[in-house]
Design a protein around this nucleic acid. Structure first.
Lengths: 336, 336
DNA sequence: GTAACTAGCTTAAACGAATAACCGCGCCTG
DNA sequence: CAGGCGCGGTTATTCGTTTAAGCTAGTTAC
């Protein structure tokens, strides 16, 4: 097999075909002011050759020469694949593109800290957005020293202040507070909260729990806490425990999916929802409208992606630390 | 603000600090055979300098020089955000990395055809995996001419044969066949199938429908078809129509999420599931175990990501057309 | 005494693109 | 007729890296 591996056309190829120098080609193709004196006839010849050869500029050769970085790396955590995260990412990508940046998702590496940071830095992005579970101080320092802005997803803005690390967080306390107030607002004084065992989720769960605790304190309600992994069996176990020790009146199930599992287990145990136990999730997934009774949830309304993208580019161009928390929670009451 | 924008260290910086030439640095850092005669003492000096400066090689400068492409672009379709797609992608990324490639997701562009192809080609990937809704013949040709392999997600392998386009498809007919046989196997002879209105989903839905039709033909069953968009209202409308014209005995709801909506609407209408209407979804999401009655579903078992990655690299290195269909459907019976 | 060899490097040329600086020619002006 | 200038480009350098080819001082062989 002597298949000639096709080579992408370069400006040199165009120059040869159009009978000009590569400089001329570059000036024409970029409409560069320095090459303003090139007559239309030559321009046309160059453009025809480029078209004919199917020329596409070599992005990294260009950025090597100009020293510009337009890549923003998004290292998603394992949990970031719901419709909520997906839509956020999509909007952000579009907004960043409109500002001249290219957002790429890069999620293969399980490794974290300096090792991961080196892999990211090799790509010379302008910024990297990464889950805080991937970041270590040494890793952040390596990136920062290389002129790469780091935006920690879920990192604590208070801790980050002054370290050069920017943050993009969901205010989990506020989510828990909204959920808790919804429950206490219904008159429930005996609350239960589910805390996922999966480590990245657990951190968020603890933030949400503290919000529920605040709401409970306001209303003089009690709060029970239950570890749960994401499985029907775990949900059944918790419900069994409730049967034994007495049902809670209001439950915050961490999010819609954990709440969905709990709801199934409650119904299996013959518990009447919401007459005996009220339930609220979070994320307001379509799932809520599939369940019967339909699940009450805390919706997270995001700021406009344009605004978030603008702030991120601010961090890039001005080297500023930005701290974003673009989601506002509000409860969506349904049947539970 | 005279913040000196930090510049990543280069081999030139290391060379200066270690008092050697850049060639030596390169030889040492790459353990190159050509530089085998460099004594340990010099090596140590170079490595110390590299460490000290926090050196990370510039991936695109390197690949510019060596002419190697190790990037695989994955242009996800809008629908690719379920746990199924997520897990597949994750495994693929890891497997490709182990083979020396870097998988990146690049999903911002709504545009398709030649315009999108140009954007992808600018990044000089070794291959691009893209939804067939993003591909046009002209776009594929542009990429192929630039030596970039194209793998169409969901493209028809029969049509692609000989065009140079590789394919990675889900066998929707087989999914529909499995679902249909499950329903006819329960003795149902009056079937209904839901067809999403969203264009990318619709194409898959049609494939699944043809599978159900085959199963129905085998058993002498009738098949009704209903358009549905992904909303509770659309589900309620279909159920209302069924009430009017007579309930189907067995329903294939396209996937778990559409089936979940249907289930909710059926229960709202007082229909007993599965006594009056049997229901099966597809994807076997955790959602199935949250619903009551728990949703029967068609699970898609994927081949090992290593094998898929190997085939993809085969397409890259040998320029071969590969046609993959790594998912096998089998029904998971639950309560519906 | 010199050719041959080795150790330990360095020099220089690429890769694809951008761009500052220059160059030859024709024409006009003083 | 020298000098200047506009036109239509070209030359050369650079970005960070790799790598083939060379170079020098010292050692060994004959």
């Amino acid at each position: 097999m002597t298949s000639i591996r096709p080579r992408p056309a370069t400006i040199t190829d165009i120059a040869r075909q159009a009978g000009v120098s590569t400089a001329t080609v570059s000036y024409v193709l970029n409409d560069a002011p320095a090459g303003a004196r090139i007559p239309e006839e030559t321009r046309a010849r160059v453009r025809a050759a480029a078209d004919d050869l199917g020329y596409v500029p070599h992005a990294s050769a260009r950025s090597l020469r100009t020293g510009t970085r337009d890549l923003v790396l998004y290292v998603h955590f394992d949990v970031a694949h719901g419709p909520l995260a997906s839509e956020f990412l999509y909007g952000l990508a579009r907004a960043l593109r409109d500002l001249g940046y290219t957002l790429m998702q890069y999620g293969a590496e399980k490794n974290r800290g300096v090792k991961a940071a080196r892999a990211w830095a090799a790509l010379r992005p302008a910024a990297v957005v990464a889950g805080d579970d991937r970041l270590t101080a040494a890793g952040v320092e390596l990136l920062t020293k290389a002129g790469i802005r780091v935006i920690g997803l879920g990192s604590d803005p208070v801790l980050a202040k002054g370290t050069g690390l920017s943050t993009l967080v969901m205010d989990h306390h506020a989510i828990g507070l909204a959920a808790g107030r919804h429950l206490t607002g219904r008159g429930y004084r005996d609350l239960a909260v589910v805390l996922p065992t999966d480590p990245p989720l657990r951190v968020m769960g603890e933030g949400r729990l503290s919000g529920v605790r605040e709401a409970a304190a306001e209303a003089g309600a009690a709060v029970r806490v239950h570890d749960m992994d994401y499985s029907p069996a775990a949900a059944a176990e918790i419900v069994a425990a409730w049967r034994a020790e007495g049902l809670p009146r209001g439950v915050f199930g961490y999010n819609d999916e954990f709440s969905g599992l709990l709801l199934g287990a409650l119904l299996d145990a013959g518990v009447r929802v919401p007459d005996e136990v009220g339930l609220i999730g979070a994320d307001d997934l379509m799932l809520c409208t599939m369940l019967r009774p339909a699940l009450t949830s805390v919706r997270l309304q995001s700021e406009s992606p344009q605004e978030i993208a603008r702030r991120i580019t601010e961090a890039i161009t001005e080297g500023a630390e930005v701290h974003l928390s673009p989601w506002t929670p509000h409860p969506v009451p349904r049947q539970t």
